[in-house]
Nucleic acid binder design. Sequence first.
DNA 1: CTGTTAGCGCGTTCAT
DNA 2: ATGAACGCGCTAACAG
Lengths: 353, 353
Amino acid sequence: MKKRTTIVDLAREAGVTPGTISRALSNDPRVKQETREKIVLLAQKLHYQPNLSARLFKKGRTRNVGFYSELPTWVFYNNYFGRLISGVAQAAHEDDVKLVFYFSNIFLPSDGDVVKAKRELTGLDALMDGRIDGAIVLKDEDITEEEAEFFRAKSPVPLVLINNTLETQGFFQLTSGIYDRNLVALEYLFSRGHKKIGAIGLSAGGVYNRCSLEAFDTFYKKNGMVFNLEWFKVPPVGHDVSNSDDLAKSLLDLKKQGVTVVICADDLQGIFAIEILKKMGLRVPQDMSVLSFGQLARESSLQAPTLSMIETDLEAGGRKAYEFFKAALEGEKPVAQSLVWKAPTDHSSVAKV
Amino acid sequence: MKKRTTIVDLAREAGVTPGTISRALSNDPRVKQETREKIVLLAQKLHYQPNLSARLFKKGRTRNVGFYSELPTWVFYNNYFGRLISGVAQAAHEDDVKLVFYFSNIFLPSDGDVVKAKRELTGLDALMDGRIDGAIVLKDEDITEEEAEFFRAKSPVPLVLINNTLETQGFFQLTSGIYDRNLVALEYLFSRGHKKIGAIGLSAGGVYNRCSLEAFDTFYKKNGMVFNLEWFKVPPVGHDVSNSDDLAKSLLDLKKQGVTVVICADDLQGIFAIEILKKMGLRVPQDMSVLSFGQLARESSLQAPTLSMIETDLEAGGRKAYEFFKAALEGEKPVAQSLVWKAPTDHSSVAKV
DNA sequence: CTGTTAGCGCGTTCAT
DNA sequence: ATGAACGCGCTAACAG
């Protein structure tokens, strides 16, 4: 492998000092035209590339933005998170900032070393390693107040929290808006005449179910009705949220109770639900409508006539997260914002009751 | 934002020199136990985090591996490339190396600056910016010999080429094996009795069609038969490879010619083909079998009874690419390898002819 | 055992 | 218009 040609090599070759090279290549007006031309030519000839690491190191910046994820690497082929990341990547690229990935170690075995074990515990520590100017943080669960306090006080790099449900003081945040999007869904379904609305949650104990239920409860109360807790189905602990057997059992029970529409946690769950309903001999959406959140994956678009989506622009969300990172770098006052969710404009996939 | 506490701050506070701090924290045996403990305690108290940028800068390494892509950022939510990237990310993470993304600028407008324009032209130049120890390169088309020559001679960082079809001397390579996988497909289909095999290609002029056709030609000749060029359908230039109208026309034509199975370029194309065949009143796989390559996306798994896949472990491929990067760093001799493609073991989705 | 010095590659002074 | 010197944070070599 070829050794890097440094500014010193170039200076030696050109018979000048490194300072002159630096000035010549950064278009400093105080350098003789003739010298500059000679240097530029020589730089091309020797294929000199300034070492950005060194340059940025001196400046105390890295022009790297971290993306921290506590989820496994399937975020790279997941329609939801992948699109979010895609947005971040685009914004960063246009800004000539590199996107660097950090994954938590919580799934890896500890080797017993205390320092390492501690790092594995919080994971976020790694973001303070000096290799990034700040990070966009995708937590699995809400950040604890203890963690928040620590990073507010000690972190030399700003953190943008995404996918949090609570507002954590002192951080830029882009929440996924589980509560919000369920409200949008409920309003939409009410407008289509649905009164008995079912839902399939995610694994028990998580924020998704909590926030969703809160939205259901609030909305039904506001309309002078009571939400039946039996209509909110939570897959057994440890089960895949798209497990066919669980889904079939839940859907059958909902149907028996006269539920007319089921809200699924993600598009995949929705697609499976539709398949199961059809196998049960039910017509979708006439006998049961199915609704979910996000953007349809390309493969799922075949389901478009039956699956209705409460939509959001995830790539725009990613861009927004990057903007927050930039704002935080500039020292601006933290802002919390939710993804914007919109009701469908094409009503063909949700029955009118 | 808090200022970083540096090794100097720590040294001042502890009443020792930076050298001692460095040794104490890197478990150098030549430091008194008492001193080390004092320093470790103080480091925790002040939340000192060694600046990895500085540390690695001195060592002349970055512990960053680049992933260069000439494809848009949908690689982040694409089932094929996303899984490949996922494998790279896992391997890098386990090795405590960060994954940094580089995207080509070929889709962005030039601002007229000559240097920038040149960079936008090749794109790969950016990989020599000193921020990474090497890179995994996902090109859209094969690397030109001119480019190859340049990087062989001038690049201070090793490049691992993926998705290339040609073997380029002097580089570690993981080819996607378009030729190979088609051979596997053809052998499998012959073993199931198929003699008239159709295929849908990608946009005209690309390597995919070229390599596929070569495989078809070779295989048929070897078996004393002639492959009918009419059986290889190429979508019109500029059309989406899953365009319904084009697919319908192609499939109808294939059926008329007595073709019994169609090989699709990717799983999405395959899924659409199945839908179209069904709409045309044909039974899949009895009247026409559909086969494709890769790993089924989760959403596509609903098609399992009808869509047959020539399989490969893409995450393993990503890991392999990372191994190649490591080997290249160690100065090992370049190796070219193809993804390993396997015929299905469950034959229910391909009819016996 | 610990302090001192030098230097990684670069940009930015301050001189000349 | 250019050279010389310094420093970013850290580690390694050399002293003591």
